[in-house]
Design a protein around this nucleic acid. Structure first.
Lengths: 267, 267
DNA sequence: CGACACCTTGAAGAGGTTCAAGAAATGTGG
DNA sequence: CCACATTTCTTGAACCTCTTCAAGGTGTCG
């Protein structure tokens, strides 16, 4: 269902009443095909451990639908009515908040096994946009059913709480990054975080394909796209990474970590 | 019990195994004195609306203890075992994360009616420090009792979810601030946010007493203390605020809002 | 193949930081 | 209760990082 992992979702800055986003629903297959949680290779990523078969059955029933989201289109948008959380099955998302006066901020990048939509709970409306950066598929989990079930299944209740707490802690890390790091440190932290999460999903420890533009990275890191580009170039010069467009190869992971940890005193 | 308000708590950057902080416990008074929730003037701030008397009684039973925290000492610290959430009855807190290499970031300022400690849920240990900026008193709410009760009282369950979601959304706002605003805009947003929350608690719309140093403001806003000081001076020059040490008077609230909303295109 | 989006790099400029000094407020101990 | 030590705040000047503006290169998609 969903993951308690070190990097999930978010939302902010309100404004209600938008149209529904690009909808492509498909009912979950009947039991015969068994595309449900028990067969999902993300199970251990996104469910509490040690569920009884009986509990797992209940939880599978929560996943009402699958939904495909095309690259570039929104899973949900600011102002839209909140009904469900979404567990990412495949694909890659960004979430971003926008103010009335056009300010924009990417608040996170999410990948398979992570849950998005938590921002919508408090106001019953979403306060950010979730945009697919590549073709994606999500499990739609109506929130009232999650609440219902987590009153019955204690481990699920605890799991939901952890997911939300995890998101809070993740954002604390981003606050630290934005509040106290220089450009090179931010980019290093960004790359290490991405590659670590990808590695947890079975991908390489040293290579990654960026799903987002320099501008989106910049927005997330509080930098201009030119600064992101220049900082990449500097890392290349220093022999720490190789960059071919969006294909990144981390040559010297230790050096990246050193960039983050060896800052001058104070701050 | 606790508030779903636009500015609550947070935590990050791990490291376990610290000593307990300054403990001053006092059991909640027996029914005779009735210092429980039903008598608390923060009730409407921090509880779901429309509780039945019976439900309220149950919830009161969750508040196990009160705890006093002296100015400058910690309610909890990074690495400490997580057991409870804390509802602030009186006083003022900051929460901040620290990394191994000494980087430090204030993640929020919390006041009466707000709940802190949510960062501890995911790892069962706190990942930030909560420090009292003035003598404070909190209600201690053991989290396992909260979970227990929120399986029984639906409105409480929903309330807990909203509190966590609210914190996520609040942090999105801070990300926006740190990622895209200039010093003057950050300070303006900070002052407006503070005064708005204070006003919701019955204080003035235009005057406030800062509980934190320039350095703490700077840490929160991603600025150096000198920059905070200079920016205050600029606001004074422009006749927008009056500053006498930590006593702030907002002379032209509209101008403050304009500073935030009238930024140049792009970003 | 041409249009468009994305990325890189240079040069000039602005905003914020750093370092330093001094003033104001606060707390402490005699 | 006053004097002194300490913390906090303000302000100036030089510096540095990142931004802005501009141009050109690369890649992609219809």
């Amino acid at each position: 269902m969903f993951e308690v992992n070190s990097n999930v979702v978010g939302a902010a800055a309100g404004k209600h009443g938008e149209a529904a986003s690009d909808i492509k629903l498909q009912p979950v297959q009947p039991a015969a095909l068994k595309l449900a949680c028990s067969n999902c290779n993300l199970l251990e990523l996104c469910m509490p451990l040690g569920l009884k078969t009986e509990e797992l059955d209940k939880i599978e029933a929560v996943v009402a639908l699958r939904r495909k989201v095309k690259r570039g289109s929104r899973l949900y948008g600011n102002g839209e009515k909140f009904t469900s959380l979404f567990a990412i099955r495949t694909g890659f998302f960004k979430t971003c908040v926008t103010t009335e006066d056009g300010r924009n901020q990417v608040t996170g990048f999410q990948m398979a096994g992570e849950v998005i939509g938590l921002d919508g709970i408090v106001q019953d409306h979403h306060t950010c946009d979730a945009v697919a950066l590549e073709d994606a598929e999500v499990c739609v989990m109506p929130f009232d059913r999650i609440e219902e079930l987590s009153r019955e299944v204690v481990s699920l209740q605890r799991h939901v709480h952890k997911i939300m707490s995890r998101e809070i802690v993740r954002e604390h890390g981003v606050l630290l990054l934005l509040g106290s790091m220089r450009a090179e440190e931010r980019l290093a932290a960004f790359l290490l975080n991405l590659v670590q999460r990808l590695h947890a999903r079975g991908f390489s420890q040293s290579e990654l394909l960026l799903r987002m533009t320099r501008e989106e990275i910049g927005s997330y890191l509080g930098l201009k796209l030119e600064t992101v580009s220049r900082t990449f170039s500097k890392l290349v010069e220093d022999g720490i990474v190789e960059v071919r467009q969006r294909h990144i190869r981390i040559v010297d992971s230790a050096a990246l970590k050193l960039i983050i940890n060896s800052h001058t005193p104070s701050c």
